[in-house]
């Protein structure tokens, strides 16, 4: 009884979830962090720890993979922002009853595995495939295939991560009250000023969540570069996969994973600090 009193009802009720999160979420992370400090190509945590894996990474060309992943993710997010804002605006304010239909069209592809969809694009773009085959048969022209280029990787990433940018953004745009927009317009603002002064700042929480979600996912992207890019580029996730599988070097893979988490985590925190969601939402 004494114990129950000291920890209070709130803590007591939160305890099961807390334990579940510790076991299910923190434990694997801690395991990865632990493994990153043991000697290369070994499998036991109970030996002397060192920074050997990190030193190996800093002396290797892994930074190229980091740069590719971060660069491709950044380009993807920027393109997504430009594509998604008009669609989000339409979904939230213009399409009316057709918004459901458009939403459905963007959602249905999510029901099919990402790999299957990417192979679909391979069939579309490959030499003698849907696009080039048709061009050849109907017009007799035979351009180079775009497969296995950096452009097609970005295309694939934009395609795969579009819903993760679109839906939070739509939510953000729909959070702007009509009367607030009308009020700005009534006070003499032009359409552009209404957008800049009212719509954009007020839909910023949704936009930021879309940015973060699609960026974090895109940094971890691997299938696009493998399937559409033909392994011309090795993103960091691919490096990690190679370390854990072919190379059987779990400690190196773990160290790479930790570094990736640090880089992405730092960037996310920086963005969250710059754009305080509560402040944007006007809660404070």
């Amino acid at each position: 009884m004494n114990l129950a009193k000291t920890i209070g009802p709130g803590t007591r009720h939160a305890l099961p979830i807390l334990l579940f999160l510790l076991v299910g979420f923190a434990a694997p992370l801690l395991a990865v962090i632990g493994f990153s400090f043991i000697p290369a190509r070994s499998f036991s945590l109970w030996q002397s720890w060192s920074l050997g894996n990190y030193i190996e990474i800093f002396n290797s060309t892994s930074y190229l993979s980091f740069l590719w992943s971060l660069g491709l993710a950044a380009v993807t997010v920027l393109i997504l922002a430009m594509i998604c804002y008009p669609i989000a605006y339409g979904l939230a304010r213009v399409f009316g009853k057709y918004a459901t239909l458009v939403t459905l069209l963007f959602t249905i592809p999510l029901f099919v595995s990402e790999n299957v969809r990417l192979y679909g694009w391979v069939l579309f773009f490959i030499k003698n495939g849907v696009l080039l085959g048709t061009l050849k048969a109907w017009f007799g022209i035979e351009p180079e295939s775009w497969l296995f280029t950096n452009g097609i990787i970005v295309f694939g990433m934009v395609y795969v991560y579009l819903p993760f940018m679109l839906f939070p953004m739509t939510l953000g745009v729909s959070m702007v009250p009509d009367q607030t927009r009308d009020a700005a317009f009534d006070l003499g603002a032009t359409r552009w000023q209404v957008f800049k002064e009212v719509e954009l700042p007020l839909s910023m929480p949704g936009i930021m969540i879309g940015f973060l979600l699609s960026f974090v996912l895109a940094v971890g992207a691997i299938a696009e570069a493998k399937v559409l890019g033909g392994q011309q580029i090795i993103p960091i996730s691919h490096d990690i996969e190679i370390a854990f599988t072919y190379a059987q070097n779990w400690p190196l893979g773990a160290a790479l994973s930790v570094l990736l988490m640090l880089v992405v985590g730092t960037m996310v925190l920086l963005v969250l600090r710059r754009f305080d969601l509560d402040a944007i939402l006007g809660r404070r």
Partner: peptide
């Protein structure tokens, strides 16, 4: 116009 919801800019 002064709106029913006032429509102040919360940010």
């Amino acid at each position: 116009m002064v709106f029913q919801s006032l429509a102040l800019f919360p940010h």
